[in-house]
């Protein structure tokens, strides 16, 4: 498989004081093939957004490499790098309320990327803005209105149009539907799926809704405390989880089916995700893992392929 986007050992720490650093993303290697949708799941604070932003150069890398079509991207972007790369890689943000500038019209918000990164005339920009408003299911005369006049689902469509107008190849969707009602979530998901088909997009789909991620993604990556613990085909990971954490995560996911809920034993995970500050060596899940062994507390398990399976797991049960 030749990847469109690939991270190798991507790491991002935040220094928050003397000898205090948040290990937000640690040594994450993930390859995304052209036209693939990879879902990234994990509890709050596991580092999903930080990974997405570091991958796109919105945060500086602490260590590791990002490759795009085989090209190693620079550690620090110059304005020219941003100009070039933001036409290829874009991000859709979680919060449809705070991610749109309230003082700009919808047309200005959507057209901003074109104004900054291309030499198109004002008229051409406006033309594309109204065509994109149309493509995301809004109307051309919405361009002169302000974000507060729109519902959550409509604002998320505006965010999608803003990212897509640059016709990127790769888009990081950070919880694009989490803030929306169920009925509206389906509208936005179907829109993303259509755009993916028509534009040949490649997506990293970040969410904590496992059912939605399984539905949307080809492959699924599970993150815990900054590291990947399992990667594989979305259905396989969901229905036959290998890593103890994935198993508990799937077991906690409520199914909209009372019979399934009555039948299954409660598989509640104990405790909470620990703080990613100054992490001790060993498996990061050891403190909550029901299958923990002595080796887990000393040796960090690597993400390795399982035999007979197109799957990567980081757990000593499989080493």
């Amino acid at each position: 498989m030749s990847a469109l986007v690939e991270t190798i050992g991507l790491t991002r720490y935040f220094e928050i004081g003397r000898d205090q650093r948040v290990h937000a993303v640690e040594d994450v290697s993930l390859a995304v093939a052209p036209r693939e949708i990879v879902g990234l799941v994990g509890e709050s604070g596991s580092g999903k957004s930080t990974f997405g932003k570091t991958l796109l150069g919105l945060y500086r890398k602490t260590a590791g490499t990002v490759r795009y079509r085989g090209e190693t991207l620079p550690d620090r972007y110059t304005p020219a790098d941003f100009r070039r790369l933001s036409r290829k890689m874009q991000m859709i943000f979680q919060d449809p309320y705070s991610s749109l500038n309230p003082r700009m019209t919808v047309g200005e918000i959507i057209g901003e990327g074109l104004r900054l990164h291309t030499d198109l005339s004002k008229k051409e920009v406006n033309g594309r803005v109204s065509s994109w408003l149309d493509q995301v299911g809004l109307s051309g005369d919405h361009a002169s209105r302000y974000p507060h006049e729109f519902s959550g689902g409509q604002r998320q469509r505006i965010g999608i149009a803003r990212a897509m107008i640059l016709e990127p190849e790769f888009v990081v969707c950070d919880e694009p539907v989490s803030a929306l009602d169920v009925s509206v979530q389906a509208q936005v998901i179907n829109l993303l799926a259509e755009l993916k088909e028509s534009l040949g997009l490649t997506l990293l789909f970040i969410a904590h809704d496992l059912s939605m991620v399984r539905h949307v993604s080809d492959r699924m990556a599970v993150m815990y405390l900054g590291s990947l613990v399992e990667v594989g085909a979305a259905d396989e990971v969901y229905f036959e989880p290998k890593h103890p954490y994935t198993e508990l995560l799937v077991g906690s996911n409520p199914e909209p089916d009372p019979e399934i809920e009555r039948k299954r034993a409660s598989a509640t995970i104990q405790g909470e995700i620990p703080s990613p500050v100054n992490i001790p060596p060993g498996c990061r899940f050891a403190g909550r893992c029901p299958k923990v062994m002595d080796v887990c507390r000393g040796v960090t398990p690597e993400l390795i392929p399982l035999r007979d399976d197109d799957r990567l797991v980081a757990c000593h049960l499989y080493t």
Partner: peptide, 19 residues
Amino acid sequence: LRSAMPVNDRSRQAELKPI
């Protein structure tokens, strides 16, 4: 509401039907 939600059923790759 129910058809707008993903169902975790392996045999059925149901499409989401938004309202």
